[in-house]
Amino acid sequence: MAEKVIMTAAEMGRALSRLAHEVVERNGGAAGLVFLGMRTRGVPLAQRLAARIKDFEGVDIPVGALDIGLYRDDLSNLGVQPKVQRTDIPQDLFGKDIVLVDDVLYTGRSIRAAMDAIIDFGRPRTIQLLVLVDRGHRELPIRADYVGKNIPTSLQEEVQVRLEEVDGQDEAVLMRGEVKAP
């Protein structure tokens, strides 16, 4: 399968730094923020963003992990159930500004599931969405508040984000050749 690098490690680092600043700027500081990374790769991304904000703001932002397996609306079509892991919410979400962090934004269905999950834990003040890559093809009225990079794709392509913590290296690639329904 043909593979094209669309984001190098260096570009990813710069994008995350910019995103960290955007989040703080948009929220007028870091107080009241909670980062929820979507498993699997959203979690290390959220941790990296929190670390960067700690560097320039000196504030510890709580980071949690969200598994949306139990909230998906496509379970019965999959045949085999996706592995679910623990959801780990660091504190009461009531009145907080949640930044939901994911690697790739595509149809928007995972985000819909994630919002359902968050609301099960309490009523935050806002939910914002941060993604490293937005590849388009939304099926729901969902948009990201913070985007690392917009990559126009076709339905036959796949975007894969690889992270040091999970995959051993940082990069985002575009893969072709596999026909995949959204």
Partner: peptide
């Protein structure tokens, strides 16, 4: 998987739409 379910059971409203 049961580990993840145990977390659900510990919630105030232990219910997910799976």
């Amino acid at each position: 998987t049961a580990d993840a379910m145990k977390e659900v059971l510990a919630r105030e409203v232990p219910r997910v739409p799976a």
